[in-house]
C-alpha cells in the first residue's frame, strides 16, 4: 500500500496502517532527531512528538511532497523548536554570507570518499545543529541549496557557508581520528 493511502487510513484511526508506516520510517525519524539534537533521551521525546503530530495532522497531508519528506519536516521542526528553546540554535548573520568560498558543493565533495561509515557518523554528530540540518537536507532529501535556504529561512550564501564549514570540520575530524 502507498504511503499516502496509509496516511488516509491513519486519519480515520486505522492502527494497522500506522504500524506499517511507523515500521517503515521509525529509523529515519529517530535518526533525524538523534543527529540533530545529539542526545538519545531527547531524540526519543522528539521522535514520539513527531509521530503524534503525524497522526494528529494526517488528514491535512497534501500530496505535493512524498510522505516521508512531510514526516521528516515535522521531525526537523520539532528539533528546531527544541534547540531554539535551549539556545542551541544560532541564526546566521550577514557577515558570514560574505565568506562564501564555493558555488555549490556536491555531497561527494562534502563527505569525501569516506570508508568507515561509523567514523563519519561520529564526526557528523559533533557538528553544530545548523550544519547538520543543512547536510541532512542535501543528503537525505536531495534538496538544492536554494531549497535548503528556503526551508531554513536564510540565504543561499548562508547555506553554502554552512556546507563549506561542515566539510572542513568533517575532514579535520576524520583526519584526527
Amino acid at each position: 500500500m502507498e504511503d499516502s493511502e496509509l496516511l488516509k487510513k491513519i486519519a480515520k484511526g486505522d492502527s494497522k496502517s500506522f504500524a506499517a508506516l511507523f515500521e517503515k520510517y521509525k529509523s529515519k525519524v529517530y535518526g533525524t532527531c538523534y543527529y540533530l539534537v545529539s542526545d538519545k533521551a531527547l531524540a526519543e521525546d522528539l521522535s514520539q512528538e513527531t509521530w503524534i503530530r503525524v497522526v494528529k495532522s494526517a488528514q491535512d497531508y497534501q500530496p505535493i511532497a512524498p510522505v516521508i519528506s512531510w514526516i521528516l519536516r515535522i521531525a526537523r521542526n520539532a528539533c528546531y523548536n527544541e534547540l531554539r528553546s535551549r539556545n542551541r540554535w544560532v541564526d546566521l548573520d550577514g557577515e558570514e554570507e560574505q565568506q562564501v568560498p564555493h558555488d555549490q558543493l556536491s555531497v561527494e565533495e562534502i563527505l569525501g570518499n569516506f570508508e568507515d561509515e561509523s567514523r563519519l557518523k561520529e564526526a557528523i554528530i559533533k557538528l553544530p545543529p545548523q550544519q547538520k540540518m543543512a547536510l541532512m537536507l542535501v543528503i537525505q532529501e536531495e534538496k538544492s541549496h536554494s531549497e535548503v535556504a528556503q526551508e531554513m529561512s536564510c540565504s543561499v550564501g548562508a547555506i553554502k557557508v554552512l556546507l563549506f564549514r561542515a566539510r572542513e570540520s568533517l575532514r579535520r575530524r576524520l583526519e584526527e581520528s
Binding site: 500506522f18 521509525k26 529509523s27 535518526g31 538523534y34 543527529y35 526519543e44 514520539q48 557528523i124
Partner: peptide, 26 residues
C-alpha cells in the same frame, strides 16, 4: 548515502509510541 542519518530506536521506545498513538487513533 540517503540512509546515512537512519538510526534504529530502542524497542521500548517504539512500544511507547505505538501505545500513545493507539489512544489517539481510538
Amino acid at each position: 548515502i540517503k540512509n546515512l542519518f537512519d538510526s534504529t530506536p530502542p524497542s521500548y521506545h517504539s512500544q511507547n509510541i505505538l501505545r500513545e498513538v493507539e489512544k489517539l487513533l481510538s
